[in-house]
Nucleic acid binder design. Structure first.
Lengths: 147, 147
DNA sequence: GTTACTGCAAAGCTTTTGCACTGTC
DNA sequence: GACAGTGCAAAAGCTTTGCAGTAAC
């Protein structure tokens, strides 16, 4: 895999734990917590521990390969970053009833244009170099609304 | 104060801890953590403990008087909700270098219009009742950019 | 007088760290 | 062979909970 090369460029080694973690993230469309990832990684390769998963995730985030999200339930969630292994840009609807996360990508282009303009002005006004933005909608999914 | 009445409508009692917590939140423009709030509350009234602050914040959030934010540093921050005691709608720039939070309210009207449209369409498409949205920009403040 | 509220201490969770061992390059 | 990476166990940090005492209405 070509990520191998990317690891070495950053001065890191490619190991079983790292490769398996990336594989797990590539093969899911869920929003996995560190422990979720650990369980999957561990079932593929029982030698790999939770600590390694945490350390790998931190590394992948620093390399820009993974994004970390907080949906308000006290544990972080991880996703392959946009563009990595075909992952597409999207935002999230978070159900405050059951915690379900719905991805949507309908308006991301529109949002991109909108935010680009705002970011430009905020950057200038506050002397702030914006590198990233987070958009999340909260509410109730159909099931929870009916209940 | 008229919040007193609001508490009773919800079936809650107004107590020293709750009143002091609201006062602290009203009088700051910082983004206080539970412990920050506790320190201030405790300095006004040393009888009030951290547990009460946590329980009060939870209550205030459920009553819609307080909003809870996560800026990625592992502890939650609390602010008076929009409209309570004159608190105005705003969003946040988060410096990933030093953790500084900058409030801005320049584009919130524009954002409101923009999001209203998107929320309407997402609600319909995903059968999801959107009650709230979160917008945050991440980047580097001037000091951290120079360092 | 009832019932909700509170403080304290202890527990619960996720995440991080120390250290000796292991594996990659 | 050097040095980064790893597992395990322990620690850290924020937040929640149990319980007996206290205060609001």
């Amino acid at each position: 895999m070509q990520l191998n090369k990317q690891f070495r460029q950053f001065g890191h080694k490619m190991t079983a734990g790292r490769e398996t973690t990336i594989d797990v993230l590539s093969e899911t469309d869920e929003h996995l917590s560190a422990e979720d990832i650990y369980i999957k990684v561990h079932s593929v390769n029982p030698k790999i521990g939770l600590t390694t998963v945490y350390r790998t995730l931190e590394l992948l985030i620093n390399m820009g390969l993974v994004s970390k999200f907080d949906f308000g339930d006290g544990r972080a969630r991880y996703e392959l970053a946009e563009g990595i292994k075909g992952a597409t840009h999207h935002h999230h609807l978070v159900c405050t009833g059951c915690g379900r996360i719905i991805d949507y990508s309908e308006f991301v282009d529109e949002e991109k244009t909108f935010f680009k303009r705002i970011e430009r002005e905020l950057s200038r006004k506050y002397d702030f170099r914006i590198t990233n933005h987070l958009v999340q909608f909260y509410g109730l999914c159909k099931k929870c609304e009916e209940a």
